[in-house]
Structure formats: structure tokens, C-alpha cells
Amino acid sequence: MNVIAEKYSSNDVGAYFLYTHEAHPGEHMPHLTSLEQKFSHAAKLRDILGVTRPILVDALDGACHRAFGSMPNMTWIFNRSGLILYKSDWTDAHSVENALIYFLEVLQRRQAGERLAPFHVERMDYRNQDRQKFYQGLERNGPKAVTEFRNAFPDG
């Protein structure tokens, strides 16, 4: 996602990461109990995991995250007026880039004089599943996170 953010920044596409809550709390990265702690964890997202996009922090009660469905790693695209153009319950860079290319082409088509009317479409996209990387992330959070995920999803 960092790569896409950089790739399309010159097309007036903004890219942000919104910090929510700890989905898999562990001994090394426990659940949040204060806004100060939330800022600290968000900084680690930048410093340790290498998120280069500007990071926004939600309220401690996750008001924004909850209003948008509370999924652990979703992506939404908005236009300048705040209109929701794209929503995905999981983040996949290929899917997001595909949508961005389409929306940027819409601008070009309008500038070329085409009359365009909006319509709705639903689509099933597919994301990469890197189980090894996922479990490495759980281990980074602490043994508790690994155990709890295995208990919740024995076949995961």
C-alpha cells in the first residue's frame, strides 16, 4: 500500500493509515487503555513496520472505525466531497490500485467531454494470503496472540 500511495500521489491521490485497536493483543503489544498509548503504538507502526503514509489516530473508543464496520484491515476510497467510492472489508493492494486506476480514468473521461452517470457494482476480489507472514506478526505481538488465534481458528 505504501508503494501505491507513492505511485499515485502525483495524481492528487491522498493515502492515509487510520489506527484503530489491537486486533491481536499480546505480551509485547497489549490492548489499548489510553489515547497516549494509542499514539505510541501508532508511532511503532511507522517506525517498526515501516508505514510511510501519514498515520491518523481514531478516538480511543474507535468511533470512526466502528462506524465503518470495524473490520481489522479494510480500505475505503473517498472523493474530495466525502463521497464513498470504494469499500473493501480487507485490504489488498491489487484491488485498491485497480479501483484507483478506474477512478482516475473517470476524471480523464469527464475532461474529454464524456457524460458519465454513477451506478453501483459489487465484485468479489481476491487477496494474497501469506500465512507465514501473518504468524510472524502474531509472534511479534507475543505468545498470547499466537495461542488465542490458534484457539479461535484451529484450522487457520
Binding site: 491521490v13 491522498g14 492515509y16 486486533a23 481489522p72 476510497i77 485490504t91
Partner: peptide
């Protein structure tokens, strides 16, 4: 013009 926000 467009803004993408990843939650996580």
C-alpha cells in the same frame, strides 16, 4: 481528488 484510507 481521491483519498484512500487503510484501517488497521
Amino acid at each position: 481528488q481521491y483519498t484512500m484510507i487503510e484501517f488497521g
